[in-house]
């Protein structure tokens, strides 16, 4: 899977053995719960008591933690400083010279950080434990359009190659002295020799890509079959229904807790 635009990490874990739709339902439940429960504690409860134990079960805890922190940390710093320092009319709790951190701002920042952490780590959990092709095939066996499967899977395989190509062109432009100084307009204009050939070349290539698809009967109408088979169990089917009910319940709980507060 090193060739695809995906963080999928193969492990012999119970989570990896789940049907992709079960995994998807689980992750959507985490996401819904994290955003539905009132802050600032709600998202953290989901993160600590649901997402982290699941990541541990999937044997991807270190991967999930390091990536989640790397993404969430800049947000956290930004939001604590900006909303903490510049909260309008808040109660000062810490004086920093002419500025002060406000309790309401910190409270808000803690809640935002929690939400970012939940969103980011939910997606990471799915990505680390679920093969993207298995997930898409599961979706199209449930009636999602074949064209969607094609778009998603082709994208995650093409994207890394484009990134490599873009980087090569960037390095070449840098070697020739790409404008990195000067006004914004100038620097954006200096990017044209980087962007235009990359895009133009790839658009011309799509003619052949389309031909290859048609030569493999891609646009033929009628029923299609699948080589890859996925293992599903009645327990997992029941589990997915329970998770769906759970999502409704947790949204209701969130509303009730907000009303009560």
């Amino acid at each position: 899977m090193t060739n695809a635009f995906s963080l999928y990490t193969p492990r012999a874990s119970a989570l990896h053995r789940l049907h992709p739709l079960t995994m998807l339902a689980l992750v959507v439940f985490c996401l819904v719960a994290g955003l539905a429960l009132p802050g600032p504690w709600g998202p953290y409860v989901v993160f600590l008591l649901l997402i982290l134990p699941l990541a541990a079960l999937g044997q991807v805890l270190p991967n999930l933690l390091s990536t989640a922190v790397k993404i969430a940390l800049p947000f956290a710093i930004s939001v604590f400083l900006i909303q903490g320092l510049f909260w309008t009319g808040g109660t000062p709790v810490v004086e920093l010279g002419p500025l002060s951190l406000k309790r309401e701002g910190l409270w808000f920042a803690a809640q935002s950080t929690g939400r970012v952490l939940t969103v980011v780590s939910s997606f990471l959990l799915l990505s680390l434990t679920t093969r993207p092709d298995a997930l898409m095939i599961a979706l199209d066996q449930r009636g999602a359009p074949k064209t969607l499967t094609y778009i998603v899977l082709a994208t995650i395989q093409i994207a890394p190659r484009f990134q490599a190509k873009a980087r090569t062109i960037l390095d070449a432009q840098r070697a020739r002295g790409l404008e990195t100084e000067g006004s914004v307009g100038r620097r954006v204009a200096a990017l044209l020799p980087l962007v235009v050939p990359l895009v133009l070349g790839s658009i011309i290539d799509i003619e052949e890509r389309a031909m290859a698809l048609d030569a493999r009967a891609f646009s033929r109408s009628g029923p299609k079959t699948s080589l890859l088979t996925l293992r599903d169990t009645s327990a997992q089917r029941a589990g997915r229904w329970l998770l769906l009910l759970g999502m409704i319940a947790v949204v209701a709980l969130g509303i009730w807790l907000r009303r009560a507060a």
Binding site: D133, T149, D205, R216, F218, L227
Partner: peptide, 21 residues
């Protein structure tokens, strides 16, 4: 350009046309 990108292994890539049929 002839690899469809829609499948992750050579075996599945070969099956792509048969799946469509």
């Amino acid at each position: 350009n002839q690899i469809t990108g829609a499948r992750f292994t050579v075996r599945e890539e070969l099956a792509f046309g048969l799946e469509n049929l």
